[in-house]
Amino acid sequence: MTDDLKDKFERLVADPPPPSAVPSEAVFAKVRTVRRRRTAGVLTLAAAAVVAIAVAAGNMTDIDSSPPVSHTPSAPTTIVTGPPTTTPTTTPTKTPSGTTTSSQVTGAVHTPKNNTPPPSSPSTSNTPAAPALGVHVSLKPTVKGRLLTMKVTLSGTALVPTAAGGTPLSTATTPFLDLLGGTQYFFGDGGQSGSDAGAVNCLSGTKRTTGHQTYTLQADPVGTHTYAKAGTYNFSYTVRYCSTKGWVPVTKTTTVTVK
């Protein structure tokens, strides 16, 4: 600093200039200046807010006046209009080939109601079916020397024949053989015999009878037949039974060996 400037500075400090205004007025002037600046800032912010509102109102031009879409996700709103429903879930199952198939469905499944009643099953009767008509014959020969004894077994179902007056025979007191239409048999050596059914008739429509009887043929007075010489003979037995078509014969044969 030069001496001239230094001298002027010292005089200024030693003898300052008098104040041009009252100190309080200077302070108030600064306060007013700050207030004016704040007021200008508030007005500026208010004007900016008005402009923003105007822009937002300009964007709401559709029918529903909805605000512009924003990218901020909002919380979902759930509206319940009825009882809760359960969605069926499927449990996947792995097959040996590696593919995944649906093996089980859980949850409530709505099944449509069908008011149509199920078709009725055909009614079945508890009445057992009537046995078929027919007679089975079984022969059992016994040979001692040259003597033959033959046992015959009859079993089956037949219509009950009627007596001479048209009355069906009694099935309670009449043997099964006598409810048949007689027998005839041949011993194979020329001899023959049989039994006569008597005065009975076979009429269709009468009730059925089921029976079983075993008896010995009465060829000789002692119940045997004697062959004159040794040999093999064919024995034949025939019996008749009453059916819807009248008398039906049934024939059974067997071999008899005489030594």
Results as ranks from 00 to 15, higher is better:
M1C: 05
A14P: 06
P16A: 12
P18N: 11
A21R: 15
P23M: 08
A26E: 08
V31A: 08
R32L: 13
V34R: 12
R35E: 12
R37N: 10
T39H: 02
L43K: 07
L45R: 10
A57W: 15
T61R: 06
D62L: 05
V69G: 15
S70P: 01
H71V: 13
S74H: 01
P76F: 01
T81F: 06
T87N: 05
T89F: 07
T91G: 08
T91K: 11
K94W: 09
T100C: 08
T100K: 06
S102M: 07
T106S: 04
A108P: 01
A108I: 03
T111S: 05
K113F: 04
N114C: 02
P117W: 01
P118N: 12
P119E: 14
P119V: 11
S123H: 14
P131G: 08
L133C: 10
V135K: 13
H136F: 07
K140A: 14
V143W: 04
V143T: 04
K144C: 01
L147G: 15
V160G: 10
T162Q: 04
G165M: 05
P168R: 05
L169W: 02
S170V: 01
A172F: 00
T173F: 00
P175Q: 05
L177E: 15
G181K: 06
F186R: 14
G194P: 02
G194T: 15
A197Q: 14
A199H: 09
A199E: 08
V200D: 12
K207A: 12
G211L: 01
Q213E: 15
L217I: 15
P221T: 12
G223T: 07
H225N: 01
A228F: 02
Y237K: 10
V239G: 04
T244R: 04
T244I: 00
P249N: 04
K252C: 00
T254G: 01
V256Y: 00
